[in-house]
């Protein structure tokens, strides 16, 4: 990865970081915030390299060939510390280890870097023990926190770091790429919405998972509006067995959300932006029978359900509750 490659998608962030490096005005701590696939992790490693590389070019580009750069790539650099979630969260012990490590001077130079991946998964006690350290970093150190959910980061942490927001990828460009590769339009549209980048969208399209998932969603919304008494059975017989993984269930929810968003789009006349283009008739019918506040209510219910899933609730209970809420209107 070079700055130029990263700048293709994140020009602003790259420009800001490069300028800070050249003017030697890097902040002591950054929070890289961006949706899945915005490559916050690659940016973090690139910044670490630029910070530690001793043969950095005049354009802030690390050399990628010296012993520092090579060892950052292989994960063996002694002054770069990477904290990743152990299981579901980052535990306070991991942060304690980090604090101990940072009470020492660097092994090879006086510079040290640490990268916290998925900083939103820090437990409260972990985040709190990191606070003091974020506030008073010792020596020449650089902290890079990385997250997809900025709102899940404690406000006390946010106020102590410089937040860099990564621009989400425009779905249109993803759709175009997918169409060029010969995938059908319906697939391309939905994949571009739920996947974070072109690679992920393509891998979703290339298996027939997305097509199946799509039909499950359409089946469910159909049942909800036409045969409410059957909907609960559909969830248990088809929906839950198919979306058996927590992560796939989240994608399923995303697709369900897209349906309701489409309803809104139909209502306000933005039909060219609809994702489920092949179900236009259904969409129009349902759009006529529901008011905008009701749909908004339903979207909120889906958001809620997604949050509950993240909080480790039982998928079955979450779905049951969601279904009742969707049928209310």
């Amino acid at each position: 990865m070079t700055w130029a490659e990263l700048a293709e998608k994140q020009a602003t962030v790259v420009q800001m970081l490069k300028n800070s490096i050249l003017k030697e005005r890097l902040a002591h701590a950054y929070l890289f915030e961006g949706k899945q696939g915005t490559k916050t992790d690659l940016m973090a490693f690139q910044l670490a390299k630029a910070f530690l590389c001793q043969k950095r070019g005049d354009d802030a580009e690390p050399c990628h060939t010296c012993e520092h750069c090579r060892r950052i790539d292989s994960g063996n650099h002694p002054d770069l510390h990477l904290i990743q979630a152990e299981g579901a969260s980052i535990k306070v012990d991991q942060i304690r280890h980090l604090l101990k490590e940072f009470s020492y001077q660097g092994l090879e130079s006086t510079r040290k870097v640490y990268i916290v991946e998925e900083a939103d998964t820090m437990t409260n006690s972990a985040a709190n023990s990191l606070l003091k350290f974020l506030e008073e970093p010792g020596g020449e150190s650089l902290a890079i926190l990385q997250t997809t959910k900025r709102h899940a980061i404690l406000p006390t942490i946010q106020s102590r770091v410089q937040v860099l927001s990564f621009a989400p990828l425009p779905p249109e460009s993803v759709i175009e790429t997918l169409l060029e590769k010969g995938y059908s339009e319906v697939q391309a549209r939905i994949a571009s919405q739920i996947a974070a980048d072109v690679e992920e969208a393509e891998s979703l399209c290339s298996s027939d998972w997305i097509a199946q998932a799509r039909s499950k969603v359409i089946q469910l919304v159909h049942e909800i509006s036409k045969r409410p008494q059957r909907a609960l059975l559909t969830v248990h017989e088809h929906w839950l067995p198919f979306f058996s993984e927590r992560s796939s269930l989240q994608l399923g929810m995303d697709m369900l959300m897209l349906w309701y968003r489409d309803l809104l789009r139909v209502q306000i006349g933005q039909e060219n932006q609809v994702v489920y283009t092949d179900c236009m008739d259904d969409l129009k019918n349902q759009a006529l029978s529901q008011s905008q506040p009701t749909i908004r209510h339903k979207l909120t219910a889906i958001f809620d359900a997604k949050r509950r899933l993240d909080a480790n609730s039982s998928p079955q209970l979450v779905m049951d509750q969601l279904l009742l809420k969707l049928q209310e209107g």
């Binding site: 001077q105 660097g106 092994l107």
Partner: peptide, 21 residues
């Protein structure tokens, strides 16, 4: 040295990192 201290005896060298602050 800047960030480490070294003890040198017969055949071995013992390095320790120093504390920051």
């Amino acid at each position: 040295s800047e960030n480490q201290i070294l003890f040198k005896a017969d055949h071995f060298l013992f390095f320790s990192r120093l504390l920051e602050g």
